[in-house]
Design a protein around this nucleic acid. Structure first.
Lengths: 138, 138
DNA sequence: GTAATGCTTCCCATGATGGTAAGGTCAAGG
DNA sequence: CCTTGACCTTACCATCATGGGAAGCATTAC
């Protein structure tokens, strides 16, 4: 099957398939005499694996580790679980960070009457801060 | 004050100050005879504004809008509030997305015993798909 | 007067993705 | 047999915000 079909079947764009190949995430497939990449069903399966991993937010670098474990029949599930837990922790950190941003902004927005007048606690907050007359005077 | 001092005082790196200038987000400051950029206290205040906005997750493009409103004494606070609300909505969308990833992954991790054995529902899920239907399901 | 910072510009890299352009290949239909 | 259109190839360029580094001046400290 050609790259276009593999893309449709896996949900990974042809562009990204070539990119993953170029970075070594996935092995280079066979080629036809004319140079067309040829993919097998198991190649497509691997691409789906990559796609699902991306959907769960794994960076490509980690997916290389996941793929290695996937192919290793003597893997320890503990290793997989650790990768997953690291990812969960990373997601949690990001969520907490975004939540803090959102709450700060929500507070400011709640305090802004939002009418035709120029007075705005949002801008007041963003613009506040010591107008440092001297940090390191020259 | 030179760019290094402005960077320290505002929390924006010298590198980023030059970048913001090059993209037109902030105006080009005056220069000394030797070509050094010279910043005033109000320039630093503006940089702090940018920094705070970035900390709240605003993309630089939106910060240009915020800065314009900040400088416009006849602004309508409703316009500021709308920008803030858009940002809140965007953050909320991202949070929801990350939360969904995290929950899916947590579910899979919970089902993984995480020991020395190779059997792993995480990999099983990532690798599943129509192609695998030929393989004997566990 | 010399050494150590600090400033300048310019280029490169990131991560994952999309876009485009120039050219080769293949299959279907007249 | 030839055209047409869909598909493939490689090779760049762009994103978004940020950091790193080099080469060359300027300023400051001692």
């Amino acid at each position: 099957m050609n790259i276009g079909d593999a893309a449709k079947a896996s949900g990974v764009s042809a562009k990204m398939i070539r990119y993953y190949e170029s970075t070594g995430l996935i092995p280079a497939p066979g080629r036809t005499g004319a140079g067309y990449r040829v993919y097998s069903d198991s190649d497509v399966q691997m691409l789906r694996f990559v796609r699902r991993s991306r959907d769960l937010g794994f960076p490509v670098e980690k997916i290389a580790d996941l793929l290695a474990l996937w192919r290793d029949r003597s893997r320890h599930s503990a290793d997989v679980k650790r990768l997953a837990q690291d990812q969960i922790d990373g997601l949690e950190r990001k969520i907490t960070e975004l939540q803090a941003m959102k709450e700060t902004l929500q507070h400011l927005a709640d305090a802004c009457c939002g009418d035709h007048r120029p007075d705005c606690p949002i801008l007041a907050d963003l613009g506040k801060g010591p107008i440092l007359s001297k940090v390191s005077p020259r």
